[in-house]
Every structure is written in structure tokens, then in C-alpha cells.
Design a protein around this nucleic acid. Structure first.
Length: 209
DNA sequence: ATGACGATTTACT
DNA sequence: GTAAATCGTCATA
């Protein structure tokens, strides 16, 4: 699979969030296993104008510094003291925008992802759609993504985590949008329709679009 | 130095 | 439906 052209990530967050749908996230583990997820849900965070973004008002801290890198780098942070979230930095260097990867459909390495998620047991319980990577924290756990991958170059196939281009982009009609999840603190921005997903896809997080 | 809180998930009533 | 888990980050002092 071909890597995502770096130029595409210099787009602003909103169009990038749409164009990442249907693309592939490739995780090369230290032991050689390769895990692949097809991206089915994203959210755009618009930077200094966006009350929901970590970079609102151009806030610069040691954590948010990553969001000001050039588009195509990974921004990984810890949330609620226990889950990680993966973002694709967007826009040119110096602009604090990013796209949160909210859900993916398993393509390769399902067994390994199931174990990483702690759903392996022999206790016959079915793994239902969305259990593996239907949510930003689940997705990171399924791909063994943590802070050590912060600032990785996602446009380089040599990286332990990178973005690949596979099938042609989905039709606009297959893309649904709605308000973002979990940002109730952000005033008017609660209503901004910056969440994108492949319409009705079973692996997306709740509520489904 | 301290306190409040979060771009979530899970288990339980 | 509600609540607990759990800690780095950020603002205030």
C-alpha cells in the first residue's frame, strides 16, 4: 500500500477529516506483527478558533506543542488518566489543527488486536462490531498506541505507525456528519458538525451517524 | 504546591 | 440509565 501524500495533510482539519475516511492506519509492532485498520470515523479540531481544541486561543504548552507541527504527524495524548487518543496533525507548521481518529474497522491482525483489547478469553463471549476499535480509546488500545508514538511521522512507511492509501475515496453520499462527542465544555462549538463517518458503518462509536 | 478536570470506557443498578 | 476508575496537564498562587 502507498503512503498518504504529505501534501494532503497540509489541508485544514475539516477537509482532512473527510478525506481520511476509508484510508488505512498501519501499525508495525516491535515484534514484527503488522496491524491494519480502515478509518471509519474522524473529528476535526480547528485550532485557535475552536473552543473544543487543545490549542484554543493559540495556547502553547509542552503537550499541545505537537499540534503545531506540520501536517502528517501524530498527536497522541492521555485522557482521563487511562485512555490514549490518536490525532493526525493537519495544516502547515505553526497552525494548531488536528483530526481525531475515532474508529476503525479491522483489516489485518484481528487476533492480536483482540488480545491487546483484553477480549481474548476462551469464555465464548462474542466480540461485537465496535468492540475492537469503535472509539478513540479502544482504537489506541487495539493498536498499542501510547505517548511514545507522539510526534511520529504518519506519512513515512518506515514509521511504527503510518497512513496508507487504498481504495478510491468514498462517495460524498456515503459520508455522514454531525456534532462532536464529549466536548460539552465548549459552548457553541458543541453544535458544530465536525464529526465525520462512513454512513451507518457498524464499527463506528455511539451514537451512530 | 495545589486543585480541578478531561476529544473515554466499563461495569453495574 | 448512573458512577467509578485514574493521572497528566493546566491554571492559579
Amino acid at each position: 500500500m502507498a503512503p498518504l501524500p504529505p501534501l494532503e495533510c497540509s489541508a485544514t482539519a475539516e477537509p482532512l477529516a473527510r478525506s481520511l475516511l476509508g484510508r488505512y492506519l498501519v501499525r508495525a509492532l516491535p515484534d514484527g506483527d503488522v496491524l491494519v485498520l480502515r478509518i471509519v470515523e474522524t473529528e476535526a479540531y480547528l485550532g485557535h478558533v475552536d473552543p473544543a481544541a487543545h490549542t484554543y486561543g493559540d495556547r502553547r504548552t509542552s503537550r499541545t506543542d505537537t499540534m503545531y507541527l506540520a501536517g502528517g504527524h501524530a498527536y497522541v495524548y492521555l485522557i482521563y488518566g487511562m485512555h490514549h487518543c490518536l490525532n493526525v496533525v493537519s495544516g502547515p507548521e505553526g497552525v494548531g489543527e488536528a483530526v481525531l481518529i475515532r474508529a476503525g474497522a479491522p483489516v489485518a491482525g484481528v487476533d492480536r488486536m483482540t488480545r491487546l483489547r483484553g477480549l481474548a478469553g476462551t469464555n465464548g463471549r462474542a466480540v461485537r462490531p465496535g468492540d475492537l476499535a469503535g472509539g478513540p480509546g479502544r482504537l489506541c488500545q487495539a493498536l498499542a498506541i501510547d505517548r511514545s508514538l507522539d510526534r511520529v511521522n504518519l506519512t513515512d512507511p518506515q514509521s511504527p505507525l503510518w497512513l496508507a492509501v487504498g481504495e478510491p475515496e468514498p462517495d460524498e453520499g456515503k459520508i455522514a456528519r454531525g456534532p462532536r462527542i464529549g466536548i460539552g465544555y465548549s459552548g457553541e462549538a458543541v453544535h458544530w458538525p465536525l464529526r465525520f463517518a462512513l454512513r451507518g458503518h457498524p464499527e463506528m462509536s455511539r451514537p451512530r451517524l
